[in-house]
Nucleic acid binder design. Sequence first.
RNA 1: GCGGCUGUAGCUCAGGUGGAUAGAGCAGGAGUUUCCUAAACUCAAGGUCGGAGGUUCGAGUCCUCCCAGCCGCGCCA
Length: 622
Amino acid sequence: MRALTPETAIGPALADAYHHLANRLAAASRAAVEAPDILLTLAPEHTGADFAFACFPLAKAWRRSPAQIAGEIAEALHAETEQEDDPWLARAEAAGPYLNLYLRRDLTTNTVLKDVGRLRETYGHSKRQDGRRVMMEYVSPNTNKPLHLGHIRNAVLGRAVANLVASQGAEVFRTDIINDRGIHIAKSMVAYLRWGAESTPETSGTKGDHFVGEYYVRFDQALRDERESWLAQQDDPDPVDERVKKKQEERFLAESELMSAARDLLQRWEAEDEDVRALWRRMNRWVYDGFDTTYSRLGIEFDRHYYESDIYRGGKAVIRDAVARGLFETADNGAIVAPLSKHPELGKNLQDKVVQRADGTGLYITQDINLATIKFRDFDLDRSIYCIGSEQNYYMQQLVATLRLLGFEWADGVFHLSYGMVYLPEGKMKSREGTVVDADDLMAELADLAKAEILERSPEISPEDLANRAEAIGLAAIVFNFLLVGRETDIQFDPKASLAFEGKTGPYLQYTYARMSSLLRKAGDWRQPSETRLTEDAEWRVVGDLLVLPAVVADAADSHDPSRLAAHLHDAAQRFNVFWHELPVLHADEPHRSSRLALVQAARTALGNGMRLLALEPIEEM
RNA sequence: GCGGCUGUAGCUCAGGUGGAUAGAGCAGGAGUUUCCUAAACUCAAGGUCGGAGGUUCGAGUCCUCCCAGCCGCGCCA
């Protein structure tokens, strides 16, 4: 059961109604509870009521059973409501220890429909976070292989949270950190130099990111072959002891000809060897062009890209300074360590973190410290969100603790938007084993399936409409599939379920929206009545979903969890479809016809707004 | 070894400071179209909420222990 408080009852009508009811209950409680402490819940469906108040907390003060209290308050409210015309409350009934509250359907409906009509595309939004400046860092790919399923979840989640935060009035900046340097890039480069000849994405007809990815895979295959023949020469090619095995692998990597070549290339890159840099720029360009294609198809946008190659050297000055101030410590071999274990106030159970290698080179966290500083400086942020998988939870705790230790006052504004992993039916995705689901492939596959479904229903459709509609439907299926499950929940990616267009899916929402649109198109001239007549249960449930939408959006934004909104949109669409099935609209008599049309129009606005926040494209026809 | 997370219907998942009869979707079963889009709607069936204790008027939710699985753990990114 969803609990509401005066703070979470967002939305023009809902806030009014809530405060009114809270005041009346507080008065009826004879000062046992103050209005701001009143906790109302949305009543369970089987009661038929709208709000409920649980009387347990009053039992002590009143020295009576919750059921008796519910009865007495109901009576008190009833007596008062008889005397004056209450704008919200129709009646109150005791049901055991609960007090069920029923809203006045006529007045509530008119108020809500007016709100939606007035606010239109901003209905459901709020201004609670006006003036806040928030950064969303998401996707953040490596430049050695194409985007896959995991990136899609990241992109879809990060975008939805960014939209939700923006819907609350904050200004949101979307960025990524591109890992464009390091040994993984050097591997692709070695492979390209050896086996690429003069081939390019153009001459081979391959998308740039896939083109480079193929050389990365090629390197790995060659390395595997090299390892095999190397192991064959060892005394014990397959040690049982894991530690021995690990040592052996380390020895192999140190002796490997291929790895030496990659390390050599990386060193020349670091030394700014012009030949190496030129090749690096060329190959990265190919990858970025490929990424752009994928992003544009997915509808992902950025305000600013940060590149690891630009920032990886920074951060050392901060570290030197921290050592001088005694915040960081130097280990025996010269490595620099953030002594997090000595500062439990920065985070529980944190171990010390090495922030600089013994040889003086930086680590991932070195540049993360630098990047965090740059972001706050560049954008004057209140909050900096990192959309990164849950496997980095511990690392992110260490990062935040390190930033706090360094004394950055903005460190509390750093937030790790953690999300669950994506598993395939056969387990974890491994690019080396080829068990990845490619982002481009998935989008193409879903669009094809959507195409087939559309042609079955509308064989007459024009090729252009077909392509556009298939794209919108296919993408909605993917996006909703990822947004419906809770943010922290690991996803078992089921290809079959993601291909479905029925039930709890994006296309279901689109279909409902298309039905609404179709109805309004066919309505001809009609005028919104000043007083609507909507009293049927099926109508009232649709009104209820409108009433609650702003609170749901605010809640999803505050918890950074789009699944709250996704679930609400599905439920609301379902209730609309029941209304559709049970009650005629165009064929109804006045005043029902125009009243229902007004309801459909408002429901369409609300559903469309909710869908756009999640980046599900509302479409007019299906 | 240590830290964190997860375990709810055949499958995939919801379940918000403990509170009314634990809810969806899919799969399987039975239906609904002379009527506004059947990508819809209705009904039936399906659950010892991993196990055992405990706290409480009340536990899927809190505490302890156990079992199973996943993620991570100072010079990888």
